[in-house]
Simulated assay, not measured.
Amino acid sequence: MLRTVVAAFWAMLPAYVPNNAAVLFGGGPTIDGGRTLGGRRLLGDGKTWRGTAAGILSGTLLALVLNRLAPRIEGRLGCTLPRFSPRAALALPAGAMLGDIAASFLKRRTGRQRGAMVPGLDQLDFVAGALWVASTAAPRWFARTFTRRTVAAVLVMTPALHVGTNVVAYLVGLKDEPW
């Protein structure tokens, strides 16, 4: 079981990092350009082109670094770690950002303001996006990497990791709310 959790964490790292990078490097023009639908912003000020690009780039670069580190780390851990195909290296972070953008769109449609908490959606939106885009862009890689047990591990560990990293970001002043 521990090997499954380690492999799941490793496989999801390129999807875990993009939202953090978007917070650190975001700002600038918003994706929605201030447009509204039904009197509400499409996405809001928190979804910017620069943040999205920084998120995708950071996750992709991390996947490439992980590919180089895997052989050294496997020996120490005693388990095999997933390698990222080029498509998977791009699909995971792009999907994570797409999932987060889709959640923002859903929040605006339901009248929630930027930063409003929606349990479940906030913790798994980027996971759903990452897994969907990766399964579409790199289906063979996805089938080898994300077994049922691996997906189950991701679904259990991600909410805890998400809450923990958001609390840390809040405490150091990078986020306005701790979720």
Rank of each mutant, 00 (worst) to 15 (best):
M1L: 12
L124W: 13
W10L: 10
H162F: 01
A116H: 12
S85M: 02
K107T: 00
R144N: 11
F146D: 08
L77C: 13
L61R: 04
R108N: 09
L13M: 15
V133D: 02
A116Y: 06
L98Q: 08
V17P: 10
D32H: 05
W10E: 11
G115I: 11
L171E: 11
V65P: 06
V118S: 14
L90T: 00
L106K: 08
G27Q: 10
G34R: 01
N67F: 12
L24D: 07
A96D: 03
M97Q: 03
G44C: 06
V23E: 14
R109F: 09
L90S: 01
T165W: 10
A96W: 04
G33P: 01
K107R: 01
A8R: 01
T4Q: 09
A8M: 00
A11G: 14
R114K: 14
A91I: 02
A63D: 01
S58R: 00
P86T: 05
G115L: 09
L61Q: 06
L57T: 02
G51M: 10
L131T: 09
V168W: 13
V65F: 09
S135I: 00
A89W: 01
A7K: 08
A138G: 08
L42T: 01
R109V: 08
P82G: 06
L90P: 03
F25R: 14
Y16E: 08
P82F: 00
E177K: 09
R3C: 00
A8W: 06
G26M: 13
K175Q: 14
N166E: 09
A11R: 10
L121I: 13
F84C: 02
R112D: 15
A63Q: 05
G173S: 14
G34M: 12
V133F: 05
P178L: 09
W179I: 01
D125N: 11
P71I: 05
W141G: 04
F9R: 10
R41S: 06
W179L: 07
M117V: 11
G38Q: 14
L98Y: 09
V6L: 10
G75L: 02
V156P: 06
A8T: 01
K175T: 13
G55V: 00
R114G: 10
D125A: 14
G129K: 07
R72T: 07
F25A: 15
L161H: 07
L42F: 03
L161M: 15
A160W: 14
Q113L: 05
T60D: 03
D125L: 10
L124D: 08
R50A: 11
A137Y: 14
A103D: 05
I56W: 07
M1R: 13
G173C: 14
V172T: 06
G51R: 07
R3Q: 08
T52F: 12
V154T: 07
A53C: 08
M117F: 10
P93I: 02
W141I: 04
M157L: 12
G115R: 11
V17T: 11
V5D: 14
G120N: 09
V151L: 15
K47V: 11
A70T: 00
A8Y: 03
T30N: 06
A63I: 10
G164C: 02
G75D: 07
D176T: 15
A128C: 09
R109A: 11
V172E: 07
A53G: 04
V127I: 12
L174K: 15
K107H: 05
R140H: 06
A160L: 15
L155T: 12
I56M: 05
L131H: 08
G99P: 03
R40S: 07
V156T: 05
T110D: 11
L81G: 02
V5Y: 15
G75H: 02
F105M: 03
A128Y: 06
